[in-house]
Simulated scan of single mutants.
Amino acid sequence: MDKALTKLGSTWISKKAKAEISHITDDLSSLSNTVEEKAKLFINKLKGKTQKALPDLLREYNIPPGLFPRNITCYEFDASKGKLIVYLSSPCEVCFKDSSIVRYANRVKGTLSKGKLSVTDGMKTKVLVWVKVTSVAVESYKSDKVWFTTTGVKKSRPKDAYEMPRDAIKVEEF
């Protein structure tokens, strides 16, 4: 009986230890990414390169400025290729004014062009179940709709729901 209890106890402790080590590893990875990105921003500032706020960049490309949460860590934008990478401290989700929910990974990648963020990776939305967002588009400056394209489905949502960046809620997994 003692052997069985000892074995059961050691198995339980082992599982708990593995879970805690996994959490610590994730936290260290997130910290490392944050430090790396902050270092890049610092170096760019030393070089005299200043970066506009992400909402201003999105507005310039006719994308609603509140598409990404307020609490992003930083972002990179290569204007020559249109490559946009947005960094967040952890996976998170935002509930917008129209009750739509968008979930973000630690890093969201996409190609930014006038009125469209395409080839996205790291973004999901809830349509009965969580589905990957492949692009976000606004047809024209006068349009009052934002089109979210998911795997095979195109869904319109009111543009004004994405006008202001909102705070995100941390989630355990993307």
Rank of each mutant, 00 (worst) to 15 (best):
L117C: 06
P65C: 02
T50K: 12
D78S: 08
G110A: 09
L67E: 00
A79L: 03
R59N: 10
E93M: 12
L67S: 02
K97Y: 05
I85V: 15
V131D: 02
Y61A: 04
N62F: 10
N62D: 15
C74L: 08
V94S: 05
F42S: 12
R59M: 04
P69I: 02
F68Y: 05
L46H: 11
S118R: 13
P55R: 07
L112I: 11
L112H: 09
C74E: 14
K83H: 11
S118G: 11
S80L: 12
F96W: 04
V108E: 11
N44G: 09
S99R: 10
I85Y: 03
N71T: 02
Y75S: 05
K47C: 02
Y75G: 03
S113T: 12
K109P: 00
P55N: 04
G115D: 10
R107T: 15
A79M: 06
F77I: 01
L112Q: 06
M123A: 06
F42V: 09
V102Q: 06
E93W: 05
E60R: 04
L54Y: 02
Y75H: 09
L117V: 07
T125R: 08
M123Y: 01
R103L: 08
I101G: 02
W130A: 00
K126L: 11
K52P: 07
N71Y: 01
L58E: 06
I101D: 01
P55D: 03
I101L: 13
K114H: 13
L112K: 10
L54M: 07
L112E: 07
C95F: 00
A79E: 15
P69L: 02
T73H: 08
G110W: 13
I72M: 12
G82N: 13
L117Y: 08
V131S: 07
P91L: 01
K81G: 08
T125A: 05
E60P: 01
G48K: 05
L57K: 03
K114F: 10
I85A: 14
G82I: 11
Y61Q: 04
L88I: 06
S90G: 01
S113Q: 11
C74M: 08
C95Q: 13
C74R: 09
P65E: 01
F42H: 15
R107Q: 14
L112A: 11
N71E: 09
Y75M: 05
Y87L: 14
N106G: 08
Y61G: 01
Q51D: 00
S90F: 04
A53V: 10
V86Y: 07
K45V: 05
P69T: 01
